[in-house]
Amino acid sequence: MTDVASDIGHRASDFIKMKVAVIKYNAGNVQSVLYALERLGAEAELTDDPDEIRSADKIIFPGQGEASSAMTYLKARQLDQVIREIKQPFLGVCLGLQLLCEHSEENNTDCLGIFPVKVKKFIPENSQEFKVPHIGWNELENLADNVLFRDLPESKFLYYVHSYYAELSEVTIATTHYIHDFTAILHRDNYWAIQAHPEKSSTVGEKLLSNFLSI
């Protein structure tokens, strides 16, 4: 598996001593995030223990699921407070991005408020042309100058599966177009978040993850 890491400009040994906490909550598809980190050579632990999360070098907040039940689950375990107080580099993925925003239209849910951004549902103007959910490979555009984008390959397609999107905002550092432009990636302080699934997005996704681990 070390060839994957070297293909994208990192040696697997770069991340070997690093402790990555992947936050465990009632969201699906966590396994593929763990496998992607493993391919990069990082030692990842799936955990909902606040102390483990607080002491990790990097934290990843993955997810696929529904916003209000995820928020209820996080609050019941005080993970909402833990997430707000993190000082280390923190990466939200997919539902993880949406939960880091202020509010989601999905069951009218107040979220964590790390990013001052609202999450809305895709409304297709023409259901023949635009289906919801937005499923498949779509391109990153309007990339800001950011450490996350260092040495990205020329082809910048990522794999998306989602029905809700974050609006464009001051903390948007990349966009994608579906029906209209929406936020592909957010960054503020030590928090980053990606709407697509980098763990399933070929070498581009792996490069985004390894850049995050290198912060």
């Binding site: 598996m1 994957v4 496998y35 391919r39 794999y159 763990e199 399933k200 997005s201 792996e206």
Partner: peptide, 8 residues
Amino acid sequence: VAKAINIP
């Protein structure tokens, strides 16, 4: 397969 490949 999941460990080896990086596409869905």
